[in-house]
C-alpha cells in the first residue's frame, strides 16, 4: 500500500473539474482516503486536499497525472504540512455532558448545540488526534459521527 500522503491540488473553478480529478483516481486505481474541496477566497481557483496512499513511484505518477489535467494549476505534495480535520457528533443527553465537554476542549472543540435528545459537539485537530478523539468519544455512545476530511497547508 505504501505510506499515507497528502496532496493539495489547485484547480480552476469550472464545470467538471472535480470529476476529472476523482475520475483519474478511479480510472488508474489510486486510492482516496479523504478529499476536501472549497474555493480559494478572492480567486477563480479551488483547493482540493486529497489524502491518499502509495509508494513513492505511485505518488509521483499521481502528481504527474494530476498535472496533466488541463484545469489543474498546481499540485503540492509536501511533507512539512499543518493538517487539520474537523469532526462533529451527536451525543445523547443522558451522557455526562460535563465530561463530554472536557474531552472536546482537549481537542479544540466544544458543545455547539443542544437539542431535544442530543447534544451536538465538535472538535478540530490533527487527523491523528481526531482518531484518538473518536476512540475516546465511544464511551459516550455517539449516535452519529461526521468527519470533514483533512485540510492542509504548507509550513
Amino acid at each position: 500500500m505504501g505510506e499515507r500522503r497528502v496532496i493539495s491540488v489547485i484547480v480552476l473553478n469550472e464545470h467538471g473539474a472535480l470529476t476529472r480529478i476523482t475520475g483519474l483516481f478511479a480510472a488508474r486505481g489510486y486510492n482516496i482516503e479523504s478529499l476536501t474541496v472549497a474555493p480559494i477566497p478572492g480567486s477563480s481557483y479551488s483547493r482540493l486536499t486529497i489524502v491518499t496512499q502509495g509508494d513513492s513511484q505511485v505518488i509521483e505518477q499521481i502528481i504527474k497525472q494530476l498535472h496533466k489535467l488541463i484545469p489543474v494549476y498546481k499540485v503540492i505534495e509536501h511533507s512539512e504540512l499543518v493538517e487539520k480535520e474537523m469532526v462533529m457528533a451527536k451525543i445523547p443527553l443522558e451522557e455526562r455532558l460535563a465530561d463530554v465537554e472536557a474531552l472536546c476542549r482537549a481537542y479544540n472543540g466544544n458543545i455547539v448545540n443542544i437539542g431535544k435528545d442530543t447534544a451536538i459537539i465538535m472538535a478540530a485537530d490533527e487527523p491523528k488526534r481526531i482518531r484518538n478523539f473518536i476512540e475516546a468519544l465511544k464511551r459516550f455512545n455517539p449516535k452519529e459521527i461526521v468527519r470533514s476530511g483533512v485540510v492542509a497547508i504548507e509550513r
Binding site: H15, G16, T19, G23, A27, I70
Partner: peptide, 16 residues
C-alpha cells in the same frame, strides 16, 4: 457525452 469522453480525450468541454 463529456462523461463518456473524459477518459479518452486530452480535454473536453460542455459549452454553456
Amino acid at each position: 457525452a463529456v462523461g463518456i469522453s473524459r477518459p479518452c480525450t486530452k480535454h473536453n468541454y460542455l459549452v454553456q
